[in-house]
């Protein structure tokens, strides 16, 4: 039977490289996707993922009862801290070019036109999502892409359930309005 995240994390704290490998394999992709969507910057997201795992490893306090929620909490707060820094704002303006660089086209990729169209479409969607207030954006990302329950999202963002619900509703409402404005100029 597969070990739980919490059991694996306890092993990590005892210095097990095997447990660390397993936990990184489980969480590298979800945390990277989460941070990429939050920051809209692939390189920043990679740095933040590394920092998140580093924090989880060096933590010496009481082990969390829910590792998944805790990992997202650490990642989210690191992203928030970075977003507040002027450096990130400067870097963020280059995110689109940066993403393009990170996805070099290979022979296996689609045609140039299709790739460019896909990148452009992604950029458009990004622009739309980035117009959401940060607080609503993160709730939507956690709910839709990471399937966290509303209670778990509340634990991650440090807010009561009712506030999480209203933020999700406001995010959907704003997104629908933005989408409608986009379609009907």
């Amino acid at each position: 039977m597969q070990d739980t995240d919490e059991a694996l994390y306890r092993e990590v704290r005892r210095g097990s490289e095997a447990a660390l490998t397993e936990i990184v394999h489980r969480y590298h992709a979800p945390l990277l996707r989460f941070l990429h969507r939050l920051t809209d910057n692939r390189m920043s997201a990679e740095d933040l993922v590394q920092e998140t795992f580093t924090r989880l490893i060096i933590y010496r306090g009481e082990p969390p009862h829910n590792f998944r929620t805790w990992a997202y909490t650490v990642a989210r707060n690191l992203a928030r801290d970075q977003f507040k820094s002027a450096y990130f704002r400067l870097e963020e303006s280059e995110s689109f070019e940066d993403w393009d660089e990170r996805r070099p086209m290979s022979a296996a990729d689609n045609s140039l036109e299709e790739t460019v169209a896909a990148v452009m479409q992604r950029h458009e969607i990004n622009l739309l999502l980035q117009q959401l207030p940060a607080a609503a954006h993160e709730v939507l990302v956690l709910r839709f892409y990471h399937d966290l329950s509303l209670e778990q999202i509340g634990a991650v963002v440090g807010l009561p359930l009712g506030t999480v619900k209203s933020r999700l509703f406001n995010a959907l409402k704003t997104l629908k309005t933005l989408l409608h404005a986009e379609i009907t100029p």
Binding site: H28, A29, L32, R33, H36, R37, R42, E46, R102, R103, Q121, R122, I125, N126, L128, L129, L140, F144, Y145, L172, L175, K176, L179, I183
Partner: peptide, 14 residues
Amino acid sequence: AVTKLLVSYEVADP
């Protein structure tokens, strides 16, 4: 339409 938009917003896995 919102769901479709969200589904189409994919980011690359490591």
